[in-house]
Amino acid sequence: MKKIFTIKSFGLLCIILFITLWTTSPALSYPVTFADSRGKSITIDKRPERVVSLVPSITEIIFKVSAGDAVKAVTYHDNYPGEPGSKKIIGGFFSPSISVIEAVQPGIIFISRLHKKVMKKFGHGKCKLINLETDSISDSYKNITLLGSIFNKEKQAARLIDEIKTQLRIISEKVDRIPDSKRKRVLRLMGRDPVMTPGDDSFQNEMIRAAGGIPPVLGKKGNIVVITKEEWVTFNPQVIYGCGGDRETAEKFFNRPGWKDVDAVKNGRIYYFPCNLTCRAATHTGYFVSWLASRIYTDEFSKKGNQVLEEKIFKSRSLDLDLDYIKHAG
C-alpha cells in the first residue's frame, strides 16, 4: 500500500508541476525587444502595469486584446474603455496635459509623431516612449501583433487579426463580382478651409480600395493633403464620405461653383460615419470597410446573386409569449 501511495503521490506531483509550468509559461515571453516607428530599439522586461496611451487606435487595440487593466490614462478622443470615469483623462490627442501625465507616473507612454512636447519632457527618463504609426492596414496588423507580445496577449491578438482579415476577405469576394466599368470613384472629405483629403499612400485610401472604390490619385503623399477645386472637378467623385465636423465643410463648399458640380453632390451620395471608424486602422477596419462598401454599392449588394455567405439559420429557440394577438394569429 505504501509503494502504491508513493507512486500515486509522485504522479500527482508531476501533474501539479506540469500545470504550474503551463499556467506560468507566459512569463517566458519576456523580454520583448523591438524597434518602434522612430527606429528606436525598445525592450520590455515584464508586462506593463502603468500605461498612458495618447493614440486612440493603440488604446483601442490594447483593450480589444484584453490588456486594458494596464492602461491608467487616455485622451478624451478615446471610446475605450466604455465606462465613464474608469480611466484618467489627460486631455485631447493634439493637446495632452504634461502635468496630468506626470501625476499618473507611467512606465510606458504610447505616442504619435505629433507629440513633440511629450517626447521632449519624458524622452530622457525611466518612462519608455513607444511610437507605433499606422500608415497602412498591414501596419495595423503589425501593431496588433506587437501589442499582443508587449502585453502577453499573443493569442488574443492573433484572433483579432484573423477576424479583421475574414471580414475583408468577404467584402473582397463581394466587390470582385462588380465589373471594373461599374466601380465608383470615392473621396474621403477632410479639412475645413481649404478642403482636404487623404494622401495617395494613406490607409484611408487603402480602405476605399478594399471597399471596391476608386480613390483619387493626386500625386501627393501623407495622412491629409489639400485638394484644389480643379483636382476636385477633374476627379469628379461619385461618392463622398466624411465624419464629424466634415459636415461643416460640406455645408460651406457644396453650394459653390465647381465644388457642387460633381456627381456625388448632384446625386446626394454624401455619407457620414463615426470618426473612430473613418480615422483609425485598428480593431474595426473590417467592419468599417464592410459598411463603406455597402454604402458605395447598395444596389449591387442587394442582389441575391451577389451574396457571398450562405443564407441559413444560425440559432433558434422557442418563445412562449403570453399575448392574445399572437395566440389568435394562427
Results as ranks from 00 to 15, higher is better:
Gly222Asp: 07
Asn223His: 13
Ile224Leu: 11
Val225Tyr: 07
Val226Gln: 00
Ile227Met: 08
Ile227His: 12
Ile227Tyr: 13
Thr228Ala: 03
Lys229Trp: 02
Lys229Ala: 05
Glu230Met: 01
Glu230Val: 02
Glu231Trp: 08
Trp232His: 02
Trp232Thr: 03
Trp232Ala: 01
Trp232Phe: 08
Thr234Asp: 08
Phe235Ile: 07
Phe235Glu: 00
Phe235Ser: 01
Asn236Ser: 03
Pro237Asp: 10
Gln238Lys: 06
Gln238Asp: 07
Gln238Ala: 09
Val239Trp: 00
Val239Lys: 00
Val239Leu: 09
Val239Cys: 07
Ile240Arg: 00
Ile240Gly: 05
Tyr241Asp: 06
Cys243Arg: 11
Cys243Trp: 13
Cys243Ser: 15
Gly244Lys: 09
Gly244Asp: 15
Gly244Ser: 13
Gly245Asp: 13
Gly245Arg: 14
Asp246Met: 14
Asp246Asn: 14
Asp246Val: 12
Glu248Arg: 08
Glu248Lys: 11
Glu248Ile: 14
Thr249Pro: 09
Thr249His: 10
Ala250Tyr: 13
Ala250Val: 15
Glu251Arg: 14
Glu251Asn: 15
Glu251Met: 10
Glu251Trp: 10
Lys252Cys: 13
Phe253Gly: 07
Phe253Ser: 07
Phe254Arg: 05
Arg256Asp: 13
Arg256Glu: 15
Arg256Thr: 14
Gly258His: 09
Trp259Arg: 04
Lys260His: 08
Lys260Phe: 00
Asp261Met: 03
Val262Gly: 05
Asp263Ile: 06
Asp263Trp: 02
Asp263Ala: 10
Ala264Ser: 04
Ala264Asp: 05
Ala264Leu: 04
Val265Gly: 04
Val265Asn: 02
